[in-house]
């Protein structure tokens, strides 16, 4: 069967509505927890523990929270497959694997990124009014949802969330911790390989501090770095989406 033939926009819209309805509590809960952490840890605690802070940027918080919330949400994307009865029900819905994948990517990838950026922008408007009342000595910077830095972080999220979609489709339970563990193992292997390849750079004397690190600069000059960058921006996203789709297609009960 050609998957392209099995793609129907009306069916996708119907399935998207269904999944959005079923997923609504998870989305609201993820948003609530993310914003709770953002307000108490990212804003109040951050300023409280650093009294020297005179300007407050939202970008760091945005990066952490869009990634964290999105990864949690993406790990729940296919949680129905972890239960035999739910999986049976899910797989019998007359929608192709491609449509199921696209619906979930739209919800947890693009949908989360756009929706979260929008809500985060509203949050910064409130924070920039409330913040100076609580901390008069701190100047709060405006957050630009369409700025180049924001868009870069959204793209990074879209590239990385595919890894959590794979975890969601492959791991039958505890998808998030299992995915994180898998990432850690892969990072260890990649780190070891990088060390072997750039052994000389690592073993030479170097200085790091004030945002500058000689060996990061050296690593950046190494030809392998351009391969890593290319793989991150051009390969990682499509490969994780393909693996997720194939995992979805070959599901059995």
């Amino acid at each position: 069967m050609s998957e392209l033939k099995a793609f129907d926009l009306g069916r996708l819209a119907g399935f998207l509505k269904l999944q959005l309805f079923k997923f609504r509590k998870g989305i609201v809960l993820t948003l609530a927890v993310t914003f709770g952490m953002l307000f108490f840890v990212g804003l109040l605690l951050d300023i409280y523990v650093d009294p020297t802070k005179v300007t407050f940027e939202h970008m760091e918080n945005f990066t952490g929270s869009i990634l964290l919330g999105g990864f949690v949400l993406s790990s729940m994307a296919f949680n129905e497959l972890g239960n035999k009865l739910k999986a049976q029900h899910y797989l019998m819905v007359p929608v192709s694997a491609l449509e199921k994948f696209i619906a979930m990517w739209l919800l947890t990838g693009l949908g989360w990124a756009v929706g979260y950026t929008l809500v985060f922008t509203l949050y910064t408007w409130v924070a920039n009014v409330v913040g100076p009342v609580l901390f008069s000595y701190v100047s709060f910077r405006a957050f630009d949802p369409l700025g180049a830095e924001t868009l870069l972080r959204i793209v990074v999220y879209l590239v990385l969330q595919g890894v959590f979609l794979i975890g969601s489709v492959r791991f039958k339970s505890y998808a998030l911790p299992k995915t994180l563990l898998a990432i850690l193992l892969v990072a260890l292997v990649c780190g070891s390989c990088a060390f072997m390849i750039m052994k000389e750079t690592f073993l030479t004397e170097h200085r790091c501090g004030n945002g500058e690190c000689e060996y990061i600069t050296e690593m950046g000059k190494h030809p392998i770095w351009s391969v890593v960058k290319w793989m991150f921006w051009s390969v990682l996203g499509p490969v994780t989406w393909l693996v997720t789709y194939l995992g979805l297609k070959e599901q059995e009960v």
Binding site: M1, A6, D8, R11, G14, K17, L18, F21, K22, N83, L85, K86, Q88, H89, L91, M92, V93, P94, V95, S96, A97, E99
Partner: peptide, 29 residues
């Protein structure tokens, strides 16, 4: 699992799972 075929098959399994929604919502979605 061609969707055109799946829309011609309905399975009522021995053990039942139903999503958290009302009868009306199930029908709608």
């Amino acid at each position: 699992r061609d969707p055109k075929l799946l829309q011609e098959i309905f399975l009522v399994p021995e053990e039942i799972y139903v999503p958290t929604m009302t009868s009306e919502q199930y029908e709608k979605y």
